[in-house]
Design a protein around this nucleic acid. Structure first.
Lengths: 112, 112
DNA sequence: CAGAATCCCACGAGATACTG
DNA sequence: CAGTATCTCGTGGGATTCTG
């Protein structure tokens, strides 16, 4: 349900392909559905919905729908979801510190 | 290339499905191919080979083959691979601390 | 705007069998 | 023992279209 710091090569993941990114997008506060689509370049509404639903089911985010037109829904990290920020940061720190080394190792080992 | 602490539900991953488990298996020292197959219940030789190759390519493990019959190959964590133990431990700590809560959240939210 | 409904495909990964 | 070689299947996830 959530990956961490996967720019090029998903080395560390949290849940599925998008979850970690969503968590980071929600780190600063509640976001609307469309607001999430912007930083998550390329995600389709279907997948975003699926991922958010799974996170909601796991108690990581809360969904708040405001009645009216146009519809407006906000997603926010739950306290439980916030506890993930720390291990996530640890993973990102590792990636920042060692990813270059991994990429270099890949170049050395003759291309697959 | 490596997941972390995914007993039932892979919530935190490192690389692919098996990588994190392999890292933990190698934590205490070098292991042979067959030795790895035991704790990784259910892994097929094909998948184990693929995963180890990817980890080797990324510079996380070293592969040492001893000539002779029967063949004998040992895998060992590289210094780079060892640096992963820390963030991995952070993820496992999170899982131990909060996984129950996640599972409870899943039960509450009516079954999918 | 926030999604639901479909369709579709690549690929991760298991099962099985074979080899140096 | 330490793999390689095939075959196969499920499903994660993308594209597209439609709706309250």
């Amino acid at each position: 349900m959530f990956r961490a710091c996967s720019q090029v090569t998903p080395l560390i993941q949290v849940g599925d392909k998008w979850t970690a990114k969503i968590i980071r997008c929600l780190e600063a506060g509640p976001r609307r559905f469309s607001e999430l689509r912007v930083p998550l370049r390329g995600i389709t509404p279907k997948v975003l919905t699926e991922t958010l639903r799974a996170m909601e089911r796991d108690g990581l985010v809360t969904r708040t729908a405001y009645a009216g037109i146009p519809p407006r829904v906000e997603y926010e990290l739950s306290p439980l979801g916030r506890t993930l920020l720390k291990p996530l940061a640890a993973s990102c720190a590792w990636a920042e510190a060692h990813m270059a080394e991994v990429l270099r190792a890949r170049e050395v080992h003759e291309p697959l």
